[in-house]
């Protein structure tokens, strides 16, 4: 009898739980804290079962105070723990912005490495689940501008587990954003054992020759569907890349693909102005400008607050908009 690697098909939220459980088991210094993460198992059940298994000293229901959660996590991290703090929604993180911006990400520099902050902040984000107001923000670019912070976004269960474990093991603060629309919408194979997915590395979702489509989070499955529809009608082939880490970007993969195709579409649901599309265009400008055959196309949310849910479908990049942008890139 051989022992095969145990692989299960998990949803993304199950993979998050699996990663947390793996690290709580492996490393005594890992603790999970946040609002309703204990007995209730989190509002999305991302921490389900962890309270029962690891107890209230390690899976901690905190008072309802985001700045308090992040601020005390900084202290815990500096004094020997690896806190994984949950923000119930990314739209609720704003009270903690000061702690993140002025302390978590600066402590290493301010003390030249004497004090470091190995913490992870997890937050579900993005629109498309008919959530109430403020629950659907996709403001990743607010955080990629913070020096000293890595910003990681998985698009599927396999990556969620591997990236989250890599984030927990990272010696510096990581913001780990979980696209809530993809939490339960599909499953992927996830090994039972511990593994990591390297931060700062993009992944090819699909190889192609004529146009590069760069995206992340919940836009990855949407983009894949749009590309599939597009390729049924057209002879051109698309290369789809899931960036997975927004800081630091995987410049090499972007460069490699753009040098091959010369045409680029960026898809993200965050607002356009100052969004990651601009940073990616800047990277392409530096790394592959002379390979471009067409202006870089972008499909983004609007420069409006994310609308309440009766209008969120109109806000989110649609299949039509993605296909339109691909055509624009190809026909230039």
């Amino acid at each position: 009898m051989t022992t095969a690697i145990q692989v299960r098909k998990l949803t993304m939220v199950q993979a998050v739980t699996d990663a947390l459980k793996t690290m709580l088991q492996e490393d005594e210094s890992v603790i999970v804290l946040g609002e309703d993460v204990g007995k209730n198992g989190g509002v999305f059940r991302a921490t389900e079962g962890l309270f029962d298994q690891f107890g209230e000293e390690r899976v901690i229901d905190t008072p309802l105070a985001e700045s308090g959660i992040v601020g005390t996590s900084i202290g815990l991290a500096i004094n020997g723990f690896r806190p994984i703090a949950e923000m119930q929604f990314l739209g609720f993180i704003y009270p903690a912005f000061n702690q993140l911006m002025t302390h978590a990400t600066r402590m290493r520099q301010r003390t030249m490495g004497r004090y470091t902050v190995p913490m992870v902040i997890r937050a579900p984000y993005g629109a498309g689940v008919k959530a109430p107001e403020i629950h659907s923000d996709s403001v990743e670019a607010l955080f990629t501008q913070i020096p000293g912070l890595k910003v990681v976004i998985p698009s599927n269960a396999y990556d969620a587990k591997g990236l989250l474990i890599a984030s927990i093991e990272d010696p510096d603060p990581v913001l780990f954003l979980e696209p809530m629309r993809s939490y339960r919408s599909f499953r992927t194979e996830v090994p039972e054992e511990k593994y990591t997915v390297e931060l700062g590395k993009a992944s090819y979702q699909k190889k192609g020759n004529d146009v590069t489509v760069l995206t992340w989070g919940a836009m990855v499955p949407d983009t894949m569907k749009a590309v599939e529809d597009f390729e049924k009608q057209q002879s051109a082939s698309c290369e789809v890349i899931d960036l997975r880490t927004l800081y630091p970007l995987d410049k090499e993969t972007i460069q490699e693909s753009v040098e091959k195709t010369g045409r680029v579409v960026i898809v993200h649901e965050a607002p356009a102005t100052g969004g990651m599309n601009a940073e990616i265009i800047s990277v392409i400008n530096d790394a592959a400008f002379f390979y471009l055959k067409a202006p870089v196309q972008k499909v983004t949310g609007f420069d409006t607050p994310v609308p309440v849910y009766s209008l969120e479908k109109e806000y989110l990049p649609s299949r039509e908009k993605i296909i339109h942008a691909i055509n624009q890139a190809l026909s230039y």
Partner: peptide
């Protein structure tokens, strides 16, 4: 290092002391 944003350090003190308790 000295905290500049007012009152932000109370949370660090609490977090560090919490770690000592743990």
């Amino acid at each position: 290092p000295p905290a500049v944003p007012i009152a932000s350090q109370l949370l660090h003190a609490t977090g560090v002391a919490w770690a000592e308790k743990k």
